[in-house]
């Protein structure tokens, strides 16, 4: 035994008391089975979380609201903004369609018969552009485009035909 060990010999004797601090008899009888059960449970939990990713993801997403209430407000605000943006864009799009149609209707004097034959009177009126885009867009007839607007020029390959019922005296 070296000098250091001798110097602390008394202390080492005192520390021997720690060896007598032991749990009650039978304490370890169920210890290993608890460890094994915990391992099995952990493994089954990890397997379950791997197999059911969606509920786990949803759970984590929802649990984020618990710890950060501000996130709820932010999400709600962004959803409202998104909804308003969608309505504005839809309205804008319908107005454009209505404006296009109005322009086409104004440059159709060469084929009045076609215009009058294909469109209802309330849509062919000059002021229909101001009558509300939504009403125009919901009418399937209104979505029909004159041939000139499709091809950007007058189509000379077809002629307008008119039908005049005549009294045939047979």
């Amino acid at each position: 035994m070296n000098e250091s060990e001798q110097r602390f010999d008394s202390l080492r004797q005192l520390l021997k008391l720690k060896q007598h601090e032991i749990p009650p008899p039978g304490y370890f009888s169920g210890f290993s089975s608890q460890v094994i059960s915990a391992i099995q449970e952990e493994h089954s939990n990890s397997s379950r979380s791997q197999n059911n990713f969606s509920p786990s993801w949803l759970t984590r997403f929802l649990s984020a609201f618990d710890s950060r209430p501000g996130l709820v407000g932010g999400l709600a605000t962004s959803m409202v903004l998104f909804l308003v943006l969608g309505i504005v864009l839809a309205d804008h799009s319908d107005n454009e369609i209505a404006a296009n149609y109005s322009a086409d209707a104004n440059i159709q004097p060469s084929s009045p018969t076609l215009a009058s034959a294909t469109l209802p009177s309330e849509l062919s009126s000059p002021d229909q552009g101001t009558s509300g885009g939504i009403a125009v867009s919901t009418n399937p007839i209104a979505s029909l485009q004159p041939a000139s607007s499709i091809f950007g020029q007058d189509n000379s390959l077809f002629q307008t035909a008119s039908y005049a019922p005549s009294a045939v005296g047979h």
């Binding site: 005192l14 008391l17 007598h20 749990p23």
Partner: peptide, 18 residues
Amino acid sequence: SLNDIDFNAENDPDLVAL
């Protein structure tokens, strides 16, 4: 939250001397 000291500690001459 200490465990009890077992009976043998009381018979340890070194500890008894201490």
